[in-house]
């Protein structure tokens, strides 16, 4: 594929990405996100990302499609010769309509569940400016390697700010979540997100997708009544995720389900390569069901040979049927 072709596609992306992210009329953010995409596509001219349906996203602000391929690289500055990525997040409370019968009050970052997917390269300096405006005390506890004082177990009271600062290490798929007890409730109500640290030499080009499994205990009985990928029950069942036939898909999968000890991730009509915790550059296993305890996460890679719709879900089928289920729509190469 020629370079000219690639840059045309990147341009196309600028416009379409605006639509897909649902930021019509709110151009600045859209452009910023689109630029990030274009930048990535320049790195990987062969990756083709089919567009998800736009109507739903436009009308409703944030949808699980927003979280699918949106990576937050922060505001970048150079300080003392180092790359510093600064992220500003606010803990808030806001209601989310989980289905026609259930509105749930979430505790969240920046009004969204899950929180933003932070992304950096190994060795970057991370600075997270955390402002708690959510009533209860909250905190952000990052997985990865850092000093004790940056471990985020100390509660940050309502109205206060804490600045977490540490190096992004080691490379892999990590996560962050509130660590104020009862942690089950603080995670279950939405204070969590993914933290991806890229290896020094980037992984090969692929269509990269984030899927976070979570449960909702809507009546405080310490059991989940609903489950979801990327925040909303059953969303990807009703809005399948389009992906390209014969293209490398790289899933960043995290199990953030509280109250159930473990969940699997199962992909239909295919097998995937497993990079445990994203800590390897070579796959360590091939399977179609992988078990994850709460907070476990992996990189899974696969591609589909045949077009059509294929389900993905935990094989704890009760969870799947209570909302943790979705579809890939494999579209033919044009």
């Amino acid at each position: 594929m020629s370079n000219r072709h690639a840059s045309e596609k990147a341009k196309l992306w600028n416009r379409r990405q605006l639509l897909q992210a649902g930021f019509v009329g709110l151009g600045v953010t859209g452009v910023a996100i689109a630029l990030e995409y274009a930048r990535r596509l320049n790195f990987s001219p062969t990756v083709k990302v089919p567009l998800p349906p736009t109507e739903a996203a436009i009308a409703e602000g944030f949808t699980p499609f927003t979280f699918l391929r949106e990576f937050d690289y922060g505001t970048v500055t150079q300080e003392n010769g180092r790359t510093v990525r600064e992220f500003r997040v606010e803990a808030r409370t806001s209601p989310i309509r989980l289905n026609s019968a259930t509105t749930f009050i979430t505790w969240n970052l920046n009004g969204r569940v899950p929180g933003p997917t932070f992304r950096a390269k190994e060795g970057d300096r991370i600075r997270v400016i955390f402002f708690n405006k959510a009533g209860h005390s909250h905190s952000l506890h990052f997985h990865g390697i850092h000093e004790a004082k940056m471990d985020g177990v100390k509660p940050v009271r309502n109205g206060a700010v804490f600045i977490y600062e540490f190096d992004a290490e080691p490379y892999g798929v990590h996560l962050y979540h509130c660590h104020v007890a009862p942690v089950t409730r603080h995670i279950n109500k939405g204070l969590y997100g993914m933290f991806i640290v890229d290896p020094p030499k980037p992984r090969p080009p692929a269509d990269e997708i984030v899927l976070i499994m979570a449960g909702y205990d809507v009546n405080n009985d310490k059991k989940n009544e609903l489950y979801a990928f990327n925040g909303l029950p059953d969303y990807y069942m009703h809005h399948p995720i389009p992906i390209q036939q014969n293209q490398l898909i790289r899933l960043y999968v995290l199990n953030m389900i509280e109250f159930d000890v473990a969940a699997t991730f199962h992909l239909h009509a295919n097998l995937f390569q497993v990079y445990p915790t994203g800590r390897t550059l070579e796959p360590q296993e091939e399977t179609d069901v992988i078990t994850m305890g709460t907070a476990e996460r992996h990189i899974l890679e696969f591609s589909y040979r045949y077009p059509g719709k294929y389900m993905f879900h935990p094989h704890q089928d009760e969870m799947a049927e209570a909302g943790c289920m979705g579809l890939f729509d494999v579209v033919e190469k044009a």
């Binding site: 409703e60 505001t75 969204r112």
Partner: peptide, 29 residues
């Protein structure tokens, strides 16, 4: 299915934060 954050103000302020955090090298700061 609805996924509406009910307060427009809240949403707008979210966008403001999003502008800050997602600009990368383009940041006005």
């Amino acid at each position: 299915m609805k996924f509406i954050f009910q307060f427009l103000g809240l949403f707008l302020s979210t966008v403001c934060v999003a502008v800050l955090v997602s600009c990368g090298n383009q940041s006005p700061d």
